[in-house]
């Protein structure tokens, strides 16, 4: 599905553009994470191996074995990646639920927070110079969706938690 194409692109873009993310993860990079957007019918399996990171969307019941699970509304998860929301605050307010290996989740959260990732940029980065052609419409769409749903779909969209 196109979602998996985007997920694959995101994974390879992270490996190429954000090597520090994997350094920060250290030994936690060998873990398997389930990122579970509770308002969607599928989950993401993340294996952040430095050489061959893998991110795939699977049906919730087909997730298989994992070390750590982070579950919450898509808006919260994306806002977390974009640095718009504070992970601890989301956990305190129960918008975000952690399960399994807490240390791995914290390492992942800290590593991602440092990378100042913009998901739209990352997905289109593999297109190289052509990325600009795709990025601008995607960003407009993201901004539009963000406005409708409250989801921080690009980094510029969020910023305030309180």
């Amino acid at each position: 599905m196109p979602l998996n194409l985007a997920a694959r692109r995101l994974a390879s873009s992270l490996a190429g553009r954000h090597p520090a993310l994997f350094e920060r993860l250290g030994e936690q990079a060998s873990k398997t994470f389930v990122i579970d957007p509770t308002d969607l019918p599928f989950v993401f399996l993340l294996e952040p191996r430095p050489q061959a990171p893998r991110l795939v969307a699977v049906r919730r019941e087909a997730a298989g074995a994992w070390d750590a699970r982070v579950a919450g509304p898509l808006a919260a998860l994306i806002g977390l990646v974009h640095g718009a929301y504070d992970g601890d605050a989301l956990v305190f307010s129960h918008d975000l639920v952690l399960e399994g290996d807490t240390e791995a989740v914290l390492a992942l959260r800290n590593a991602i927070d440092n990378e100042e990732i913009d998901l739209v940029d990352e997905v289109f980065a593999p297109l190289g110079p052509l990325a600009v052609l795709a990025t601008a419409p995607a960003r407009r769409l993201a901004a539009l969706l963000g406005g409708l749903t409250g989801v921080a779909l690009t980094r510029g969209a969020g910023g305030s938690l309180a």
Binding site: G83, D86, G87, D88, R109, N110, D113, S160, L161
Partner: peptide, 10 residues
């Protein structure tokens, strides 16, 4: 120091 940059900023 263990909190996110969203926390730091606010």
């Amino acid at each position: 120091r263990q909190r996110s940059r969203a926390y730091t900023q606010t």
